[in-house]
Design a protein around this nucleic acid. Structure first.
Lengths: 212, 212
DNA sequence: GATCGCCTTGGGCATATGCCCAACTTCGAC
DNA sequence: GTCGAAGTTGGGCATATGCCCAAGGCGATC
């Protein structure tokens, strides 16, 4: 058996990260406590400060890690895209995959706010966000979207805003907002701009990618 | 003499509300404490629970009150608007009026997240948001925007998203994002989307940076 | 088997927090 | 002048919280 102690330590650490992610969305960033996260992870409270310097360090690690994973996934998904509209669809699909009361995207918003009060976290989150924004802008440039940089920035921000508002207004399904968001791309392809509720064409048609 | 005691009580209550608003953005919703808000308001801690049932009640009152005031102001501003584009400009100007490190709009985002965990607050915030969204949608309908309801919803959500992202990315000035956001209105007025003829309340700050 | 490194435990300390309350002040009404 | 309502004060209680630490496993290495 390979390093049982080390392995268990690693697992405990990851369980803490997962527990923290849940609790951030449930209680809010500043509402996560040492003992709560330890209990959720099934470990004792002392463990938290063995694996992390502080509760805030745990939360930052959780947020940055989650965002990095999501961004990495989205970047590879965007690489397979063959039009700007498809890129938008990919992002919307990712947004939908978390269902309505999506825990993960609320975590992002909590992280943004926490970054407002923590310069170090802000730096790390900005880096991830820039990465995603740049990847999207590259697709846009590639497919002839004007103001690609600015458009990408607005699209990413808008999607985060929609995530937030959807928590209060369930009518904001991706199907509903997609026709409107498409206008952001500036392509005047006039594809029947008033049809809502796209049935199920939300998945990019290429290889199987219905997971996330 | 007009009720001095009653008057002072009222003032203390309002000072508490203002102090709470500041602290919510500084420390986050769940980071606001009885004593901190009392100290900021210049009263003793006992006062807080005399005027409000609980700290959470204080916070909710603060958030809803602030949002109601902002919405009321925006509604009257929107009434004077003579085009959909001008409506957008009005909203952007309001967004800018709070300067870069705007305390108020961060408060809104904090409130959205808190509403996620408090059904009562969620109800109240949804009502205010619906009011604003409807007022905007009315303007849009009036000026021939297709999908007025959906467009209004997306615009409001996008602006909140931009507020959040601007806290991390100062390049997201209204001047920078305005040309992109105009596309949301679906009015295909000329391709050059970076020129506008409304000279009056041009709120755009002198955008220094263009690289996002 | 002894030793070492990594992980874990459970308790503990100083402080913070929400909320309460009895006594006190203030000021208009009678 | 007395009374009562509205507001204020300062202390206090039970609990929660962040972080620490000495002691205890436990497998790998020698």
């Amino acid at each position: 058996m390979a390093a049982t102690a080390k392995e268990r330590g690693r697992e405990a650490r990851e369980r803490l990260l997962r527990a923290a992610a849940e609790l951030i969305t449930e209680r809010g960033w500043t509402g996560v406590t040492t003992r709560a996260v330890a209990e959720r992870a099934g470990v004792t409270a002392g463990i938290v400060h063995y694996h992390f310097d502080s509760v805030d360090a745990l939360l930052a690690e959780t947020a940055v890690g989650t965002m990095r994973a999501a961004t990495a996934w989205l970047k590879t998904a965007l690489e397979r895209v063959s039009s700007a509209d498809e890129a938008l669809t990919t992002l919307l699909a990712a947004l939908d995959s978390y269902g309505g009361n999506d825990p993960e995207s609320v975590l992002f918003v909590e992280a943004y706010l926490a970054a407002t009060r923590d310069p170090g976290l802000r730096e790390r989150i900005s880096a991830v966000l820039t990465e995603l924004r740049t990847a999207l802008a590259d697709r846009f440039t590639e497919h002839g979207i004007t103001d690609a940089e600015e458009t990408a920035a607005v699209v990413v921000a808008s999607l985060d805003g929609l995530v937030m508002h959807r928590a209060l207004n369930p009518a904001l399904t991706t199907g509903t907002v997609r026709p409107v968001l498409r206008r952001l791309l500036g392509t005047e392809q006039d594809g029947g701009s008033d049809r809502h509720d796209e049935p199920s064409d939300d998945c990019t048609t290429t290889d199987g990618r219905d997971r996330l």
